[in-house]
């Protein structure tokens, strides 16, 4: 099966990448933080989170920094930073387009 390209990011992927802007984080911290941040709108199941972390690692979007017991912490790489920025730009453009069309209609 051909690997799916990461870009554009799925919603859970986007939130995982967003979390790393707070610094080094482990999987459990990410899922707790995303839940809090989105007030429960975006849920990150453990399986989903683990798959995303695996895919990110394979694409060098994040890297391991260390482990504490069973928990492994990651931080974002430069490539990840670029990917995130591209996604934010894409969404900004989407929003701008949406605003333009709806404003025009009004």
């Amino acid at each position: 099966m051909a690997k799916k390209p990461l870009y554009p990011l799925t919603e859970p992927m986007f939130y995982v990448l967003l979390c790393f802007h707070r610094g080094v984080m482990s999987g459990t911290e990410i899922s707790d933080y995303v839940k809090k941040l989105t007030s429960g709108r975006v849920g990150l199941g453990p399986g989903t989170l683990y798959t995303i972390l695996g895919a990110f690692q394979a694409e060098n979007v994040i890297e391991k920094t260390g482990s504490e017991g069973r928990r492994i912490s990651y931080r974002i790489t430069e490539k990840g930073e670029r990917l995130f920025q591209e996604e934010v730009d894409r969404m900004r453009k989407c929003l701008a387009d949406a605003d333009r069309v709806t404003d025009h209609e009004e």
């Binding site: 099966m1 859970p12 399986g47 798959t51 995303i52």
Partner: peptide, 20 residues
């Protein structure tokens, strides 16, 4: 408790790997 998989993309990726 959150579902193990909360989106179809990660679910399909994970399970097609297992199935392979």
């Amino acid at each position: 408790a959150e579902e193990l998989f909360t989106d179809m993309e990660s679910y399909q990726e994970y399970f097609s790997r297992c199935l392979g």
